[in-house]
Amino acid sequence: MQQISFALGRQTLLLYRKSISVFSFVLEIIYELKNFFLQRKITRLILIRQILFTGFEALGLIAFVAVAVGGIIILEGSAILPGFGQSKLLYTILVTVILRELGGLLTAFIIIARSGTAIAAELGNMVVNQEVESLVSFGISPILYLVVPRVLGVVLSMIALNIYFNIAALAGGWFMAYLFAPIPIPDFLYKLFSEISVSDITSSFIKSLFFGFIIAVVSSYQGLQVNFASTEVPQRTIKAVVLSLSWVIIVDILITAIMYLV
């Protein structure tokens, strides 16, 4: 019994220390954001390259997945909904699934797979190679120089990619709908926009903002948690992926619940 309570207490303390560590890390990022905009010349290149890698280079994959998902939704919906006279729900489902949920989630998953792993591995290797220590010795904040541009880059890329995803998915949906019953784009857009509300766009925007932030913060934190050995890098990368996925889903549920309550 004593051993159990000892183990429980130790785990609680560990969790508390980790929470404090992560919380202070997030606060430091937010604090350094101000300095980032003041000294933007130094870190602008990192930001641009981060957006280029995380956003622009993922555009093809995002577009492909989005078109496929939009088309599948229309395909499945066209097969089921007319059976009980609810064909008009096709647009509602398209909007609900793509704009509110899948758009943000799938984009986040792709960014985790591509950029989250890359950030964790890159920062982990920098720690192993003592590059981070060098920055500190020069009086340069590694958070300002390494983490903030990555966080900003991932957040901006996530928002932009989410918009492209939604557009591509709706285009895919229209294309599939056109194959079944030729419907002019203006008619499709009219019906589609009849189902979209401002809250859908707001929800999508807020989700992509939070998802981007979570992915960048978790990946950077895990990357910087590497101590000395290069063998730690893949372990931390895996941890970054798992934690990013978990937190993205948790936050998605929370935001969805809040949006429905509001």
Binding site: I48, R49, I51, L52, G55, F56, L59, L156, A160
Partner: peptide
């Protein structure tokens, strides 16, 4: 052209 690409992208 990274700046132009990223600018256009955003």
């Amino acid at each position: 052209y990274s700046e132009k690409i990223v600018g256009t992208f955003l």
